[in-house]
Design a protein around this nucleic acid. Structure first.
Lengths: 366, 366
DNA sequence: GTTCAAATCCAAAGCGCTTTGGATTTCGTT
DNA sequence: AACGAAATCCAAAGCGCTTTGGATTTGAAC
């Protein structure tokens, strides 16, 4: 029975090069069939516990590791989660994506999944999803940065590939699985807070408004103004990719108005840093001269001490929601969906925290 | 011959669900053997061009796509590149990693490779490399954030898995393939520039010095001071993970010294933003009151307009090298290495640009 | 019209795993 | 002691591709 295997062993293959051992060899050493060994390792009930223990022990001792491609070929599962992102196109995605994936990757790792990362511009993503699905390269995907009316969602539903959207694509968000922050309410609260402080002219430095999250944020801002009986002023509204220099330029433009705003709501801490830089250039101070509220995704490299360590008063007053925690949650939702594709569609809406920092105060009296 | 396939076709499988078509079916429709079809598609010379054209046409028409796991099982190649990173541990890696992978991913995509991303703390990475190699899950890996004397390199050499190091791990850098920026010279130049402007007390806000790149940067700084006959002052030296609040706190500490520095060299634009924030808090202005030179990785979300668009004068005076371009280069080197594992080990050292911005000036006279 | 390469194509054996359908053994019952 | 169900295990058939070793055909040369 074990002759074959012993021959190989004596040849020295295993001891020296630690050449991978496969199921066949393992079952031969054990004097069991491949079936039994496979079932023992995969936790099937029809194998005696004594046998299972023996098998597991031997597998560990001989450093047996099943070939992923063989398993994938046989089962059709790949234990991979696809993330398709356009890191070149909307570069503001980059740092956000890194933190999101840091959270998601943690969950994947705990469940034996890996990330398949594909960089591609938006217009190619539909084709890529199709390829990934047909090739069975991934067991599910996460949709990043959904636009309002995003066509990727329809495609994915058609493909039958499990997916979760980080964010939403429309008002209902009914026929797909998503996890989102309540962007509208967050910006409503931020704007109302500034109004309550007495600010009457409030600028909005928003993200790209074809992105659904930015669209919602603007709605929150507008509704708050409306409720306060303040007319919208287009000159106070900006929309672009959320990078630092954008915040800088928008602020310079705002402050050159004949009636500059006394407060600004900013879609991300990144442009918000540009805002403070612009104010500094003009000899103005954030908080004292111009109030700022930013949306804070808890980007790891900007704030280090949330939990313990250094409990600083945060610089920016902010509506805050950890994108990294979002990554974890989305990952969990997706894995559940993969395990049970028939389960009803889940969705989850998080409220952002509102934290007071050093950049808000009542408007200056002249 | 084609009966089998037609039967399936008529059943409607292909037209409706676009069920994946496999080699067998494709060869049956063509009336050729699987061998010939496979060879035709993979560009082998022993198939007539006429036949090849016919095969390719049919493959496209029927939307044939070879199964990656089957191909991987048969060939042992996975068309995947492994990136193992610890996004949680040294969070400063995050934004840098995102831009690096944006560059690398572009090259991978052009060559039919994908990224397998695995999040793991440093101490697990050796085991993970071993697993990835034995499982044949990836055809090569990139080593991120090498420490001085990094054990991962020895492991990888032992495994025979092709790899390229982004950065270096030791003085020689001889027995592995790497691509690095001349960090020592960059910081030497930066420091010397400040000395030439007349600065005598120069702070260093460095990265974690167990990281090889940070170690080298410090060497450059020290040598420049030494050459100018200025003694090192430990109170001017900081070393930590390069996040924004670190720059802030280090600067506060620096400015509280009885003899505060008149200039600071900073290891990254991220802490440098903290530096300017701290200075602003103290009523000081970067450039006028305290000079700053930062290392600038061209992080996408901080500077948008390098190439064309808005040719701003950069804010920070900086030594600059695009981490994204580095990603591209590393990816190319790795793919070459995979194609030709026997070729001599390559390495590449880039010089950083030195760009003058708005944060350097001669020291204030009192 | 042979002959012999060169050109072209093929059957079949893997690659390493899962899983179906059955065979064999064990064990409590009668 | 015999019986049937439960427990345990197995042989073999895929999964879809690559590739070896060989068969067949073509075409130029004699």
């Amino acid at each position: 029975m074990t002759r074959n295997f012993n021959a190989l062993w004596k040849k020295g293959d295993f001891l020296t090069t630690r050449k991978a051992i496969n199921l066949k060899m393992l079952s031969q050493t054990l004097g069991l069939s491949q079936t039994t060994v496979s079932r023992a390792l995969n936790g099937f009930p029809e194998v005696a516990e004594k046998t299972r223990a023996r098998v597991i022990e031997a597998a560990e001792r001989l450093n047996y590791r099943p070939s992923p491609s063989a398993a994938s070929l046989a089962t059709g599962k790949s234990l991979m989660i696809g993330h398709v992102v356009s890191l070149s196109e909307h570069i503001m995605i980059n740092p956000h994506f890194a933190d999101f994936i840091a959270g998601a990757g943690e969950v994947y790792g705990q469940n034996g999944y890996d990330v398949l990362l594909r960089l591609a511009p938006l217009e190619e993503q539909e084709r890529i999803y199709r390829d990934l699905a047909e090739d069975q390269r991934v067991d599910g995907v996460v949709v990043h940065g959904p636009l309002t009316g995003d066509s990727r969602i329809g495609i994915l539903n058609g493909l039958g590939l499990p997916f979760v959207v980080h964010g939403r694509s429309d008002e209902e968000g009914a026929d797909y699985c998503w996890m989102d922050v309540n962007n509208r309410r967050a910006f409503h609260r931020a704007t109302k807070f500034l109004l309550d402080l007495g600010h009457l002219r409030i600028g909005l430095i928003n993200g790209l408004e074809k992105m659904n999250f930015a669209d919602r944020r603007r709605q929150g801002y507008e509704v708050a103004l409306e409720e306060a009986g303040i007319a919208l002023d287009d000159r106070l509204l900006f929309s672009a990719d959320m990078v630092e220099p954008y915040g800088y330029r928008a602020t310079r433009a705002l402050m050159e108005l004949e009636q500059p705003p006394t407060a600004i709501v900013v879609a991300s801490v990144l442009p918000a840093m540009g805002v403070t830089r612009a104010l500094a250039d003009l000899g103005l101070r954030a908080g004292e001269d111009v109030s700022i509220i930013a949306f804070d995704d808890c980007l790891s490299f900007l704030q280090s001490g949330y939990k313990g360590s250094v409990p600083d008063i945060p610089f920016f007053t902010a509506v805050r929601s950890s994108i990294r925690e979002a990554g974890k949650r989305v990952a969990r939702m997706l894995l559940e969906r993969i395990d049970n594709p028939q389960a009803p569609l889940q969705s989850e809406l998080w409220e952002a925290d509102f934290v007071i920092g050093q950049t808000t105060a009542p408007p200056r009296r002249h």
